[in-house]
Design a protein around this nucleic acid. Structure first.
Lengths: 342, 342
DNA sequence: CTGAAAGCGCTTACAG
DNA sequence: CTGAAAGCGCTTACAG
C-alpha cells in the first residue's frame, strides 16, 4: 500500500503538519525531530503524491512568462508549437501563462518585455535570450528574486539559471562537416558556406564546427567562400548569384542559417548544366519543399518542438513540484534529415 | 479566475455531483439537464483540474503492465530507460506497475506473460507484440475487457488498440537507401544488405524500403547480396567473411538489424587494402564505438527512449485522465547519426 | 434522477 | 516549535 504523510506522522508520533514541514525543509521544526521524521519517512519509503501537492498549492496560482525572439522567423514555428503544447498541459494543473513575441534578437526590446512580465507578477520565465551583458544582468536579477529562468534555443553565458534547452552549435557544425565529407565519397569538392552573421554566436559556432571537421578529416574538400547574408533573402539571392558566376568549380553550397529561399532562386537561375548539391539547417517550409523536390539533399535539424515543450515543462515542474532537471543543460538532438525522414 | 465545478454548479442550479456526472457523461442524469450543464460549462470556459481529478481517483489505484521482448537485445536498453522514466513519473500520481521482460519475439511466452499480468489485475498494458494471430486475439480480448493496450517499437495488425509508438519501417528503409545514394556521390557502388530474418516484418519492410529507393533513384548502386544472419554474431561473422572473399568489388555493407559485431570483425580481418563503408541501424554500444572510431560511417536511429517513454505516458494519461492521443499511431522520428551526433 | 457529504494527500494560516 | 483544522477541486457511495 502507498505510504502517505499520515503513516509517517503516526510512525513518528507527530502531526501531519509537522511531517510536511520537516520533509520539505520548512522553517520552524525542532531539528532533531525533523531529522527523525526524515529518517522514518525514508525507511517507510514515503514518496509525495504530486497530485495532492499540486492541488494543495492551487491557492497560490502561478504564472509562466514566455518571451520569444520569433517574430518573422519561420524556424520558430515549431518552437512555438512546443511552447503552446506544454502551456496547455500546465493549464490543466492551474498554471497560467503570458506569451510575448518580439522581432529579432533585440536586447533592448527583450529587456522591456521582461519588465512588462515582471509587472504582471510572473513566477518564472522561459526565454530565447540575447547574449548581452544587460540581459545577463536582468536574468541574474530574476534568479535573485527567486524567479527561475529557462533559456531555450540559445543560451546566455555567465548567469546561472534553472536550465537551457537547445543544441550544441559547434557539434551542429561538425555534423554538417561530416555530412559534406560523407557525401564527397572521397572525391574533390568545392564548397561555399553561407551564414547570416558571424556576430550571432550560434552561427559563428556552426561555421567553426564545419571548418574544423573539414580541415581535420576531409582534405578533399575545399571551402571556396564564406558569405554572410544577414538572413536576408534578397541579399542571399544576389550574393549566391555573384558567387556562382565567380566560382564555376563550386559543387556544394551549405546554408547554415536563413536566406535559403533567395539562395536557391539564384542557383535555379544560374543552372548551367552542373548539379549543385545543397545542404541546409533546420526544417522550414521552404526547406521541406526543396528537400522533397530533390533540390536540397539534406538538412540538419535540432528538435525545435522539443526545445519549446521541454523549456516550459521544466519550468512548470519546478514551479509545481520544486523538481529541478538533473542537468541544467538539456541538449536537444542534432540529426540529419533527408526527403524521407522529415 | 479559474472556473471550477462549483461555479458551473451554481450557474446551473444543480449540485456539484450532477455537474460531474453530466460533464463526464456518466449514467443517471436527465439528458436535458446534462445538455444544459455541458452548455453552461462550455460558456464559462470550464476546464477540469487534472490534479484534483487524479487525487479524487486515488481510491481506485491502477496498475500498468509492461511486457518487453527485450532480454538479451541491447537495442532495447534505451526503450527500457524510457519505460522506467515514465513509470517513475506515473508513480508520483499513484500508478503502480509490473514489468516483465522475455527473450525473443516468442508468441507463446508473450501470451503466458499477458495472462500472468491479467491475474495481477492490471488496468492497461504496454507491450512489444509479436505479430501473430494468437497475440492479436489476446489483445482484442484485453481491449474488450476495457484494458487498453499500447504497442511500442513494433505494432500488431488487425486489432484496434489505444496506440502504437514506433517508427515506420519502410520509411526507415528508404532513409538508408537515400543515405547510401548520397554517399555514392554519383559513382558506381556495390552494396551488400544484411538483415536478421525476412520473417520479421520490420526487417522485411526495411529491406523493401532500401531496395525500392536504390532502384528508383540510384542506378549507380548495385545490390550484390542480401544475407540473413538470424541476428547471430557468429553466423554474421562467417557470412560476411565468405561474402568479402566472393565479392571483391563490394564497396558498402549495410546492417539492417543485429550481428554488427560479428560482421565488423569479419571486415577487419579481411581488410585487404580496400576501404569498405559500413552503415548500420540503431545505436547500441557496439555501433557507437565503431562510429567513433570511424569504422561505421553512419547509423539510422528511431528514438528508442521515446518509444518506451511515450508508450507508458500515453497509457498512464489515459488511465488517469481518460485522454486519448490525437492519433493512435505515433511515429517516432527516424534520423541519421554520425560520429558527431550520437 | 439528484443532492449532501466524505474522501483523495498535502499544505498552511491560526492558535497555542 | 507543534497540532488541529480547513481547504485545494473532483469523484462517488449512499440516501432519497
Amino acid at each position: 500500500m502507498k505510504v502517505t504523510i499520515r503513516e509517517v506522522a503516526e510512525a513518528a508520533n507527530v502531526s501531519r503538519g509537522t511531517v510536511d514541514r520537516a520533509l520539505n525543509h520548512r522553517p520552524g521544526v525542532n531539528p532533531q525531530v525533523a531529522e527523525r521524521i526524515i529518517k522514518i519517512a525514508d525507511e517507510l519509503g514515503y514518496k509525495p503524491d504530486m497530485a495532492a501537492r499540486t492541488l494543495a498549492n492551487k491557492k497560490y496560482t502561478k504564472t509562466i512568462g514566455v518571451i520569444l525572439c520569433s517574430e518573422g522567423n519561420p524556424f520558430f514555428n515549431d518552437v512555438i508549437n512546443g511552447v503552446n503544447n506544454a502551456l496547455e498541459e500546465m493549464g490543466h494543473f492551474g498554471i497560467q501563462n503570458i506569451v510575448r513575441k518580439i522581432k529579432g534578437f533585440d536586447a533592448d526590446l527583450l529587456l522591456k518585455e521582461i519588465d512588462g512580465l515582471l509587472a504582471e507578477k510572473i513566477s518564472g520565465l522561459v526565454i530565447t535570450p540575447v547574449n548581452s551583458q544587460n540581459v545577463a544582468q536582468k536574468i541574474q536579477d530574476l534568479e535573485d528574486a527567486n524567479i527561475p529562468v529557462v533559456t531555450i534555443n540559445t543560451d546566455i553565458s555567465s548567469v546561472k539559471h534553472l536550465a537551457y534547452v537547445g543544441c550544441d552549435y559547434i557539434t551542429s557544425g561538425c555534423v554538417a562537416g561530416e555530412l559534406l565529407g560523407m557525401m564527397s565519397n572521397g572525391f574533390e569538392e568545392h564548397v561555399a558556406l553561407i551564414i547570416g552573421s558571424s556576430m550571432v554566436m550560434a552561427q559563428e559556432q556552426r561555421l567553426r564546427g564545419i571548418k574544423k571537421t573539414l580541415k581535420r578529416d576531409y582534405s578533399n574538400i575545399t571551402v571556396e567562400a564564406v558569405i554572410e547574408n544577414d538572413d536576408d533573402d534578397q541579399k542571399s539571392y544576389e550574393q549566391v548569384k555573384a558567387l556562382l558566376k565567380e566560382k564555376p568549380e563550386l559543387t556544394t553550397i551549405c546554408f547554415a542559417s536563413a536566406g535559403v529561399e533567395g539562395g536557391i532562386k539564384a542557383v535555379r537561375e544560374s543552372d548551367c548544366g552542373r548539379k549543385l548539391r545543397i545542404v541546409t539547417y533546420d526544417l522550414t517550409d521552404i526547406v521541406r519543399e526543396n528537400l522533397k523536390s530533390g533540390v536540397v539533399s539534406a538538412t540538419i535539424c535540432q528538435e525545435p518542438f522539443r526545445q519549446g515543450f521541454l523549456g516550459v515543462e521544466i519550468l512548470g515542474r519546478y514551479l509545481l513540484y520544486g523538481t529541478k532537471p538533473k542537468e541544467s543543460t538539456i541538449k536537444t538532438h542534432i540529426f540529419i534529415a533527408t526527403k524521407y525522414n522529415l
